[in-house]
């Protein structure tokens, strides 16, 4: 702990390049250690104090505000290329306290504490009166929508059977009545199109994750599901040195490559028009 009488700290500008460098190391730390949910990006540096360390180095105490992006933590896309979740999509902010040790010009994290919270319903209503708010992830309609979407995905998929990993975001849309859900999946050793019991399928040793967005629309006499999934390239199990760019996201279509590209679904949370097609609607 750096605190104590007689110790003098300096307070650089929050927008100093050195402060920003420390904040970006903190952001990387968050995104590499989040067990679920979405990557966060730096929004604002609130405060910074720099304490001298004995025998050498400096300790940066830094408070930062972050914002949720649209990239799931399992998505290998670098956070710099991830879009920030917009207010009308019901943004989520993070509030973090970090301590980073700077030694020989390099930062390392020694302490981290973050809380995240969704924007208030009132703020969402200010920018969009009709936009749906975030729904509890264990809501029965949300869970049903995710399971129905995954079943539809597996039924159309020529590759591995995928299991539901995590429901990461959901919104209940009043008009037209529908449930929008985002979830992650994990590949198994079963073939998707074969009718197999999920209990008999094993997760692949070399994990293959996917991220899906789905809308379950209630119709007269039934429901209609639209789902797009992006399956991420399998990451090597060993930590061998990788060539430059090897960690970048490489979308792998897992459905019929002749299928038409994704039409806009009109659901919240989808990429803006003009985004490159990275998956297929089933």
């Amino acid at each position: 702990a750096p605190h104590g009488p007689g110790l003098i700290y300096r307070q650089p500008n929050c927008d100093d390049p050195e402060t920003e460098e420390a904040a970006l190391v903190a952001i990387d730390y968050i995104n590499q250690n989040l067990p679920w949910g979405y990557k966060h990006t730096l929004n604002q540096i609130d405060e910074v104090k720099v304490w001298p360390q004995q025998p050498s180095g400096e300790l940066f105490e830094i408070e930062i505000d972050t914002l949720e992006t649209t990239c799931h933590v399992l998505d290998p896309t670098p956070v710099a290329r991830c879009s920030v979740r917009q207010l009308k999509e019901h943004a989520v902010e993070g509030d973090c306290d970090f301590q980073l040790l700077k030694l020989d010009g390099k930062f390392s994290v020694v302490y981290a504490k973050c809380d995240s919270s969704p924007d208030s319903a009132e703020d969402v209503r200010k920018v969009c009166q009709d936009c749906p708010l975030l729904a509890p992830l264990n809501d029965t309609r949300v869970v049903h929508a995710a399971k129905a979407a995954l079943a539809a995905f597996n039924a159309q998929n020529n590759g591995s059977n995928f299991q539901l990993e995590e429901i990461s975001r959901a919104q209940l849309v009043p008009l037209p009545p529908s449930t929008y859900v985002e979830f992650t999946v994990s590949g198994t050793d079963c073939v998707a199109k074969e009718a197999t019991e999920a209990a008999k399928c094993n997760l692949l040793a070399e994990k293959q994750y996917g991220f899906c967005k789905a809308t379950l629309s209630e119709k007269l006499g039934g429901a209609e599901v639209a789902v797009t999934c992006m399956v991420f390239q399998t990451q090597p199990v060993s930590s061998q040195p990788q060539p430059e760019g090897a960690n970048e996201a490489v979308p792998t279509p897992v459905v019929d490559p002749d299928a038409p590209p994704s039409p806009p679904l009109g659901a919240p949370g989808l990429p803006p028009a003009g985004s490159p097609p990275d998956s297929h609607v089933l």
Binding site: P12, N13, D15, T41, N43, Q44, A91
Partner: peptide
Amino acid sequence: TVVQPSVGAAAGPVVPPCPGRIRHFKV
């Protein structure tokens, strides 16, 4: 003789060191 009235040093806007700039939007 025209005398320039004394003018104080041009004071630019004072930028507080913290908090820093907002990169996206405030929630």
